[in-house]
Amino acid sequence: MPMTPQTAQGKAFIRPCTVIYLLLMALTLVTWALGKFNAQIGLPAMTLSMTVLGIAMLKGHLIGDFFMGLRRVRGPWRWVVTLWLLLPASLITLAFMQAGQ
């Protein structure tokens, strides 16, 4: 692919944020389908839950990095969204493990 000059950026090829956007939409569909059709797929409840939670973490991280622009930030603010995601996610995991017993 030929290099595009900086000024034409966004017109000549698809923007990174658009790629991320399409990825987020696809991941959302996966989560929804797992919920909707798990009767047919037959994943154990815990596997299903942890999969969709993992997908949500990934989506959250992408939103933080690309939409909120944190990937171009340094220092503690760089990780604010990711760290926040870990907090409820780990508590939720703990609670679901507790419930599974």
């Binding site: 959302t28 409840a45 839950s49 969709v52 939670l53 949500a56």
Partner: peptide, 12 residues
Amino acid sequence: WIILFPLVYVMR
């Protein structure tokens, strides 16, 4: 909402 959606609607 990204967390809320799987947590309340899907995770079981």
